[in-house]
Design a protein around this nucleic acid. Structure first.
Lengths: 245, 245
DNA sequence: CGAAGGCTTGATAGACCTCAAACACAGTGG
DNA sequence: CCACTGTGTTTGAGGTCTATCAAGCCTTCG
């Protein structure tokens, strides 16, 4: 595979993702493809950047599943977001120089590292790309807000259903979900850390959802027989994802 | 008062605030002061923008207290952030064209409305201002994340203490808090809606905090006799606010 | 086959919610 | 001046959701 093709293959999840939220010209897309980046394959459960780090590059997820999390002083963990191919979970480090949380892999993942200076240079030359990435960080924030609603006001049952809906829509937007499901390599413990629940309770609620035939979750693979029902169960409205179309 | 002075007075909370998170030149500050804006005084409990609106201007808080919130399908409310003078709670509407939540006043407030087109024009001419405001939205997102941690993993006691700490630091950064307290015109019901708690439980926990001498909260005014103790009670670390100094 | 990690189940406990009512206080109007 | 009203605070009692602890089970993998 040529370097050019390799690059094309690397950035294509990002192109897919940006295309789902913003309209870019061919020139702008090409500029993204031309970005220098270092590709790195990482095992599950490795940190990409850590709390208090001062990163000098951003990480773009190419494959696998990544999360943003923080360990509290008493050792418990809160996961604050899941990141899929096309996402740049630490884009914020461009303007926030010290990390206030960590980012790590949940499954074997391949990651592209893009130096800040190259990204900054690019955004200076292409204001439209800067707008696209600003918009991306704002959608990230919208997702945080939606999670706050879940953590603050929704039951465990709704929270789990809501998360499964969100990932279905986001996965679909980058071509990683079929009409009725996707790969979800998460343990029940990790789900609990994201939703503010204990592992035991996650297990019980998943059984309810399975029992009602709303989901089929087995071996890291989620099947959704009745998308309508899952949305109702999670009180889900995809407006906050701000997808085009 | 001349128009120029009026403008100066209007934008000064914004200058204070941006100064606390970013370094701006005098020319850039002047450009902000020169922004055209419409000033509006609003009663408590009025909406500034509503869920599903498509605003064509941003609102800058000049005085008072404003919040970001969403009403769920069952009628309950989740407050997702408090905004004080100098904040632009709907800055995101520059790039996210449909609101996915509402913004409204909590006390009598004065608000400056700045048309998107003028703001966009300004950011095009001053890339450094664009960076400052992008950074501001990223800090907003960092605050969402911290609230997620609270909602997901902290006890009611910690959550309340943490919020009071956050507001002390933010108020102080714009000159609205003394060393030991600030005006907090919030009802216990509003606190509950922000923290995912019932009014009754907020009341009980506040009594605990008062009983321990950690806070004195009366008539919309918060006094903090022991700042150290409050930080410990809330497991508070201001790093996520990304203030300079 | 044994070990490790994840899943499942049961029993008990606690944090927080809901309902209901009383209380405090400021503003209003006769 | 004093009832009257409305909003916010406080208190009590009972209930529920979810956590914690503890153990057994299942699958994968070396």
């Amino acid at each position: 595979m040529s370097v050019a093709m390799h690059r094309q293959a690397s950035t294509s999840p990002l192109l897919w993702k940006l295309d789902s939220i913003f309209s870019l010209s061919d020139e702008e897309k090409q500029a993204l493809v031309d970005l220098p980046m270092r590709i790195k394959v990482m095992e599950a459960n490795c940190d990409i950047v850590r709390d208090r780090d001062k990163p000098s590059e951003c990480c773009l997820v190419l494959s696998g599943l990544v999360c943003r999390y923080k360990i509290l002083s008493d050792g418990r963990r809160q996961i604050m977001g899941f990141y899929i191919p096309g996402d740049i979970p630490d884009l914020q480090s461009l303007h926030l120089h010290v990390m206030d949380h960590s980012v790590g892999t949940l499954s074997t993942s391949s990651i592209a590292l893009i130096p800040h200076e190259n990204l900054r240079d690019l955004l200076g030359r292409y204001p439209n790309l800067a707008a696209a990435l600003w918009r991306d960080t704002l959608i990230d924030a919208a997702i945080f807000r939606e999670w706050m609603i879940g953590l603050g006001r929704r039951s465990a049952y709704q929270r789990i259903a809501h998360l499964l809906c969100e990932l279905q829509v986001r996965m679909k937007a980058v071509g990683l979900a079929s009409e009725s499901g996707y790969e979800l390599p998460l343990t029940q413990n990790e789900l609990g850390d994201a939703l503010g629940l204990s592992t035991v309770h996650v297990n019980r609620v998943l059984q309810d959802l399975r029992g009602e035939g709303v989901i089929v979750l087995r071996g890291g693979s989620l099947h959704i027989p009745d998308w309508e029902a899952l949305q109702v169960a999670g009180d889900f409205d995809p407006a906050y994802l701000h997808l085009r179309r």
